[in-house]
Simulated assay, not measured.
Amino acid sequence: MPRSRLVALAIAAIATLVAGLLVSTAGASSAKPPANVAGLKIMLTNDDSVQGAKADGSDGAGLYELRKALCAAGADVIVVGPWGQQSGQGGRITTDRATGLTVSPVTPPEAYAGDCADAESGGHVYGVCNSNTPCDADSKSASPADTVRIGTQNFLPATVWPEGPDLVLAGINWGQNVGTVVSHSGTTNAAVTAHELGFPAIALSEEFDLIPCAVQGVNCPTYAPGAAFTVKLIGKLRAAKLLKPSTLLNVNFPFIADGEKAGKPALNVLGNGDMVEIAWTGAATVETGGTYMLGFPTDRKSTNKNADTEALRANRISIVAMDGDWSITSPSKQLTAIVKALG
């Protein structure tokens, strides 16, 4: 069956599943597989780091909240994440032949220390650095894509899971990853890398009110509700037999301000706009060039139908089914004719 047909079938199945998340499961047939995560071998990564020390939650709190929820629901979770902050790194991989990637054990923050003590594989947490010695405070971090490659292809098969994980999760990220920013996101590209290597994968991010969160430490992601939803989503995917290599999802949780209400989950497409569009400011001349400094992000609404950016603005949990394939299956007649004429 052509790849495009397989992807279409997978997206249709996921659309049905998302619709099912909106209704009660009471009266469901007992013959169906259980909608839970018990026993699933899950590798957890992110692009915020495995440190989990900052009060605003920007250096891994989302990862630890997700780990807590998954282990409480019976999943077997191991973290293999970037040693340090790697936001905006896209799918970058390390190609330095002189300096390798070292996987070092990490002690979880005190608040999360015992969350996975009963996990079958021990609930270990590891950080990955670009170093030939154990990671320390001065170590350069591996990228999110590095952690997925080294985790699924080398470290986990050699230590605990010969076949690798059943599922790779990236997140929950500090800040939304929707619209045009997705191709630059370390979170989403960690999931894309896992998909490329043949594993079902989900990227998870939570919207923030950027300036109040970054400057004042208010209106930041809380993570726990998103983590609880993720457990439910994975259970539903498992029951529908959708934890397979063709499954690649990008999930974003809305920021719900005081007085606002959360909307229903929605199956969307990537928007053609952005909610955190990078802007640079500076001055330059033809003769000398110039220096540009990172400015305050701008906001550009999407104009395409059913965009994830607009769903998030409406306080809905946005779920985008992706295929990780940049190619066009039906190129234009003009391009086809040009290529043919070049022969």
Rank of each mutant, 00 (worst) to 15 (best):
A53I: 12
D47L: 02
E65Q: 11
Q85C: 02
G62S: 15
K68W: 12
R92M: 05
D48W: 02
R92K: 08
Q85R: 12
R97G: 05
R97T: 12
G88W: 09
T45C: 09
T45S: 15
T99V: 07
S58P: 00
S49D: 08
R97H: 11
S87T: 07
K54S: 14
L44P: 01
K54F: 14
G90S: 00
L70S: 14
D59R: 03
A69K: 04
K68F: 08
G60Q: 07
C71E: 02
V50S: 07
L70G: 08
N46V: 00
L44S: 14
G88I: 08
I78F: 02
L44W: 14
T95V: 06
G62I: 03
V79P: 07
V50C: 09
G84T: 07
N46H: 15
L44H: 10
L63F: 10
D76T: 12
D48Y: 06
L63D: 05
D47P: 06
Q85S: 09
P82L: 06
D59Y: 05
D96A: 10
I78D: 06
V50K: 05
A53W: 09
D59F: 03
D48A: 15
G60W: 00
G57S: 13
K68I: 07
R92E: 13
L63K: 03
L66V: 09
M43C: 14
G57L: 05
A61E: 10
A69S: 13
T94Y: 10
Y64V: 01
E65F: 10
I78H: 03
T45L: 14
D48F: 09
I93F: 02
A98D: 09
G62V: 11
V80Q: 10
M43F: 15
I78C: 10
T95C: 03
D48E: 14
D59A: 04
A53C: 05
R97S: 15
R97D: 11
L63P: 01
G52C: 09
A61W: 02
G100M: 02
V80W: 07
R67T: 04
D56S: 15
D76Q: 07
S58F: 12
Q85V: 02
K54I: 05
W83T: 04
V77Y: 04
G60H: 03
M43D: 06
V50D: 00
I93G: 06
A73Q: 01
G52S: 13
I78K: 14
T94S: 12
R97M: 08
C71N: 03
I93D: 01
R67V: 00
W83E: 08
S49R: 09
A55L: 11
A72Y: 02
P82T: 12
D47V: 04
L44I: 15
Q51I: 14
A75Q: 04
A73M: 08
A75L: 04
L44C: 12
Q89G: 01
Q89E: 09
W83D: 11
C71V: 08
W83N: 06
A98Q: 15
D48H: 08
L70C: 07
I93E: 11
T95I: 03
R92Y: 01
A73T: 00
S58K: 01
R97C: 03
D56Q: 13
I78S: 03
